[in-house]
């Protein structure tokens, strides 16, 4: 194994100069970026692209609309799920207020992933048996129909990964035109969180005869609710 200074000085020798002590000048970037003119357009394009990838999406303006939307999408299913598994709905410790109150009015109890078990492996099993994982999103990207989620001690990465369905809530103001704008905000965090997950639609593969198949590992159904205050 090499030590760092030997490894780096070998590269400097290959490049024929000493290793710079100052950061190299940044490359000038002037690519034309995708831009939309209004927040309404941003939301609408975001939802269009999300749906084109196979996700379901809706805009809500009140707790009542959220509740109606959840009922429309999931109907009586959660009641059936709860008969088999009391931890069928797995969520972050804290969801946007509108989501918390909608689930509570529906009387669909949420299991909080981070507190669901002491041992991580038990938490994974709970997540793998859950029917629906519920998260918020920190950003959205219109151009690609993507939700972007940061990791955090009160959240949990497996919620958007192990259950067969993932539902995410996003504030309309968090939706950006393109990835560049999102990454600018990530860079502004200084030190990024342990994981930032960008999710564009359900899990997919075309590895067998180029035939598209949904849900080989991650969620099979994905839902997004845009909260527009």
């Amino acid at each position: 194994m090499s030590n760092t200074s030997d490894f780096i000085s070998n590269l400097a020798a290959k490049l024929g100069r000493p290793t710079p002590t100052q950061p190299p000048p940044q490359v000038k970037l002037s690519v034309p970026q995708y831009q939309l003119s209004s927040s309404a357009e941003r939301v609408s394009v975001f939802l269009q692209n999300w749906q084109a990838l196979g996700g379901k999406g809706a805009i809500v303006r009140s707790e009542d609309e959220t509740l109606q939307c959840l009922k429309q999408w999931f109907g009586e299913q959660p009641i059936t799920w709860f008969k088999e598994n009391s931890k069928a709905l797995l969520a972050w410790d804290k969801l946007p207020t509108i989501a918390e109150s909608a689930f509570s009015s529906l009387n669909w109890p949420l299991t909080r992933y981070s507190q669901s078990a002491f041992d991580p492996r038990d938490r994974y099993s709970i997540a793998a048996s859950a029917e629906l994982g519920i998260t918020g999103s920190d950003w959205g990207i219109s151009l690609s129909g993507t939700v972007v989620v940061k990791s955090d001690p009160l959240r949990g990465r497996a919620i958007s990964l192990l259950p067969p369905r993932h539902l995410s809530f996003i504030e309309s103001t968090k939706i950006q035109d393109n990835l560049f704008n999102v990454l600018e905000e990530v860079a502004a965090l200084g030190s990024p969180p342990a994981a930032i997950e960008m999710i564009s639609g359900p899990s997919r593969t075309s590895d067998i005869e180029m035939d598209l198949s949904i849900g080989v590992h991650g969620p099979i159904e994905v839902y997004v609710i845009v909260i527009d205050h």
């Binding site: 990465r157 997950e197 991650g218």
Partner: peptide, 22 residues
């Protein structure tokens, strides 16, 4: 030919000690 792959993950490891997974 996708705009982005279904999952793009940016890891800044290791996990925060209080994170429930990672």
């Amino acid at each position: 030919g996708q705009r982005f792959s279904s999952y793009t993950t940016i890891l800044t490891p290791p996990k925060n000690t209080a994170d429930p997974d990672g």
